[in-house]
């Protein structure tokens, strides 16, 4: 007797429920780590693009142009295989023969982060440019140090202006993690593929994976929406 749909998706001996949930966990962690790393790159990139020095501005410009222009999957390959080649070469010359590969989760997060950061840099930059200069001056005129200004005035207001667009970038980062299946990370898409192959039920498992992506996206989107709403409150009349 062939197992039914609920057996296949359940948690029994023939069920793929647990592996799929674990894979969803990997997807969420990779997206979250990638996105957070991306905000570090993004804030750094925005700072470079807003710098007074033309050289720094050029570096920031190059970063956002390159990583927004190159296909994501290529970035993933470059980091994973490129990184492994560099590591192997280094270790070989250091007297450790053999081939070494980098952990796919770490390199995957790095790839998602650097691409997401390129998009986030644009968002942080334009959010910063929307700030009221007078309010920053008012802070300075009260004796606030640069750091205090950043922490109390510039940071919170930039975040408020950036948040709507950051929500979109989060959704992309979440979907981009599916590309990490190509470097062997058992995230949602790869796990669904494995299940589809071994049960010959591709429609079922890919549909389930799609539904899980949607649910994760909608749930996290709702959280971001609430944050956005909360931060926008002071600006409403």
């Amino acid at each position: 007797m062939t197992p039914g749909m609920f057996d296949l998706l359940g948690f029994g001996p023939q069920g793929w429920g647990l592996p799929l949930l674990q894979a969803a966990g990997i997807t969420i962690s990779a997206a979250l780590c990638g996105f957070l790393l991306g905000s570090v790159f993004g804030i750094g990139g925005a700072t470079l693009k807003l710098a007074r020095s033309p050289v720094l501005r050029l570096i920031g410009q190059a970063y956002t142009t390159i990583f927004r222009g190159v296909p994501e999957i290529l970035v993933v390959y470059l980091f994973y295989f490129g990184g492994s080649v560099v590591l192997t070469t280094l270790l070989n010359t250091g007297g450790f023969p053999g081939f070494y590969s980098l952990p796919s989760f770490v390199m995957g997060v790095f790839a998602v982060g650097i691409v997401s950061g390129a998009y986030q840099a644009e968002v942080y930059r334009s959010a910063y440019l929307r700030l009221d200069r007078g309010q920053i001056e008012a802070g300075a005129s009260c004796g606030m140090s640069k750091f205090l200004l950043l922490r109390r005035i510039i940071g919170p207001q930039t975040l408020r202006f950036a948040l709507p667009a950051l929500g979109n970038i989060w959704q992309s980062a979440l979907k981009e993690t599916s590309l990490l299946s190509v470097i062997g990370l058992t995230e949602l898409l790869r796990q669904a593929g494995t299940a589809a192959g071994s049960t010959r039920q591709p429609l079922l498992f890919y549909a389930v994976a799609a539904a899980m992506f949607l649910v994760i996206g909608r749930m996290t989107g709702a959280v971001l929406g609430r944050m956005e709403n909360h931060l926008a409150k002071p600006w409403r009349r």
Binding site: D132, G134, E137, S141, C142, G143, I153, P156, Q157
Partner: peptide
């Protein structure tokens, strides 16, 4: 330090909107 002793009121108020 001196800025807290010489306080400024601006034309556009410049209250912190958040």
């Amino acid at each position: 330090r001196l800025r807290t002793q010489v306080a400024m009121v601006f034309q556009n108020f410049c209250l912190w909107s958040h």
